[in-house]
């Protein structure tokens, strides 16, 4: 079981602060590093992978420093975002070379190629590969030594939906096996589908951490939207709008429901059932209408 510790890490380039005082712990299982483009995800992953020194703070893997410690790569597998990968080799030659660099042989390479289901194209030159095939061969090269920590920078970029699903299955499997898997993405549905744990980075800062429902709950100051059906929508609307925890209510006649915008999450969740009971209104359905990562994310980006 491998744990990656990022302790008060900052990184600046000249006057630009790319990563600003981030502290997080990446534990076994699949973690998604979510943030818009330019948020500092790649900078952070480069520091996690030992390719960039933190300006301040430290990155350690089970207590061992990652920077300037090449022995750490016995435990780390890296899937970089950049495309370049010795295009003049065949997929098999490339993965075999990666295995050899770990002191392993052809058997390990073949196993890794089988894991990513690339055996059928292993003897073609990498230069002829599609983006998804490249991604899978990169993945194989990162898996040859069965690392306990796998770092992937935007692994789903340019993959078609089928390839994406395959890779997600593979990463899920890795996480279930007890490996520590961290991938970055700016695409919300990817993170939502795959990661059990999410770290959100916005403008170089650590904006939130946890599973995404928890992240959402943490941000009680942002407006929450609910879809509520009741035995008397108008009476319920009138009673709710009197309280400052509610900032807007729309009576959706087509849906036969209320669309409520709450500004005080904690207070509203206590208020709703009480008001309903006091007014003798039956609540038929209460559902958060924006419980998607998209809304959390757009809020974070706007903030």
């Amino acid at each position: 079981m491998t744990t990656l510790n990022i302790d008060h890490v900052s990184r600046w380039f000249g006057n630009v602060v790319a990563v600003n005082d981030i502290t997080m712990t990446i534990s076994p299982g699949v973690t998604g590093l979510l943030g818009p483009n330019g948020a500092g995800k790649s900078t952070l992953i480069n520091m996690m992978g030992g390719f960039l020194a933190p300006s301040t703070g430290s990155v350690t893997l089970d207590g061992q420093a990652v920077w300037r410690n090449e022995q750490i790569y016995r435990q780390i597998g890296i899937v970089p975002e950049r495309e370049a990968m010795y295009d003049f080799l065949t997929g098999r030659e490339f993965v075999v070379a990666n295995a050899e660099l770990h002191g392993l042989g052809k058997k390990a390479a073949q196993k890794a190629l089988a894991t990513v289901e690339m055996e059928y194209a292993q003897d073609r030159k990498i230069s002829t590969y599609s983006k998804g095939m490249r991604q899978r061969v990169k993945m194989a090269s990162a898996l040859v030594h069965e690392p306990s920590l796998l770092l992937l920078d935007e692994p789903f970029n340019g993959m078609d939906p089928r390839q994406r699903m395959q890779l997600m299955d593979l990463l899920r499997r890795m996480g279930d096996e007890g490996r520590t898997v961290l991938f970055s993405s700016h695409i919300l549905e990817e993170v939502e589908q795959l990661a059990s744990h999410i770290e959100v980075i916005v403008a170089g800062r650590h904006a939130a951490s946890g599973d995404f429902r928890r992240i959402r709950r943490l941000m009680t100051d942002r407006p929450h939207r609910y879809l509520v059906r009741s035995s008397d929508d108008r009476a319920l609307a009138a009673a709710l709008i009197a309280d400052p925890s509610t900032s807007g209510i729309e009576v959706d006649l087509q849906e036969g429901a209320l669309r409520i915008q709450a500004v005080d999450f904690g207070r509203f969740t206590a208020l709703l059932p009480r008001v309903a009971r006091d007014h003798g209104i039956r609540l038929l359905a209460v559902s958060p209408s924006d419980e998607s990562l998209e809304s959390v994310f757009s809020y974070l980006v706007a903030a």
Binding site: F51, E70, R74, I76, R82, A84, A97, N98
Partner: peptide
Amino acid sequence: DGSVVYLLAKPI
């Protein structure tokens, strides 16, 4: 082109 990462990410 960044492919040196495959050499650097090794215990060498």
